[in-house]
Design a protein around this nucleic acid. Structure first.
Lengths: 126, 126
DNA sequence: TTCTCACTTGAATACTTGTTCAAGTGTAAC
DNA sequence: GTTACACTTGAACAAGTATTCAAGTGAGAA
């Protein structure tokens, strides 16, 4: 049985437009809810894989350690664009690199992201 | 042993700036590479979870079937914004809905996405 | 030293995206 | 009929992002 509608107030103490329909259910779900910070970090993690260039970089590096220009050749995107994306991946500590004279070799530095990638691939391939 | 640098040509038959360093490795990786379409669908899938509002909606719906205004109340985002995001989730067939008079009840319609969500959460919580 | 090469970086541009606001739909109550 | 309500939708705006281009770095070859 559904409870009556209730007007609630937000933190600014304004009249809140939101009306809850099922107070009990809302309270229960809200209790188990992600914190704003958790939701933020979670979506940030998924954002890394939300770009086709980055997914392809990660996929390529899951197969072999590669230098920047070889990643560029494999994926068919300019060296500059790859370098920019590698910086994103570096900042998130998802790849590591090794310098050998002029060359810079990149490889994956996070097992989780590979798991996530493969889980996503499974979903796409049904 | 590193092979010599090679200038390759792209599909437009222009001289391509990209030089491969290790032809064999590049060829091998390229062979197992994702197609452009696969990479696109993969990153599209991850894009769904790349927004905190959507991750919270999915998390909420993984706990209970909820109407729009209750989702709004749980998450603390306007009904309109929630509705827009629900459309995205509907278009990707990740949620289903059920109408009961004036109310619309949403619930998850894809087990894969819950798996992906939980895998991501595991990563975030270490 | 000078030159080339592999890569990085900053600025600019074009594109995408999330939220708000206002208007609109359809159902139920009055 | 009118009103209230739950939700949807389109337009507009702001914020974020991926790529390109040009310049810069630093290591090794000449």
């Amino acid at each position: 049985m559904r409870k009556g509608r209730n007007v609630i107030r937000n933190k600014h103490n304004d009249i809140c437009e939101v009306r809850t329909v099922d107070k009990r259910r809302v309270a229960a779900v809200r209790k188990g809810m992600l914190t704003g910070e958790e939701a933020g970090r979670l979506s940030e993690t998924f954002s890394v894989l939300a770009d086709p260039t980055r997914t392809r970089i990660i996929h390529a590096l899951s197969q072999a350690e590669l230098c920047v220009c070889d990643i560029s050749a494999v994926i068919g995107v300019s060296v500059s664009a790859i370098s920019h994306q590698l910086r994103v991946l570096r900042n998130m500590r998802l790849v590591k690199f090794r310098k050998e004279s002029k060359m810079v070799y990149y490889s994956l530095d996070d097992g989780h992201i590979e798991t996530l990638f493969n889980e996503g691939l499974k979903h796409v391939r049904e």
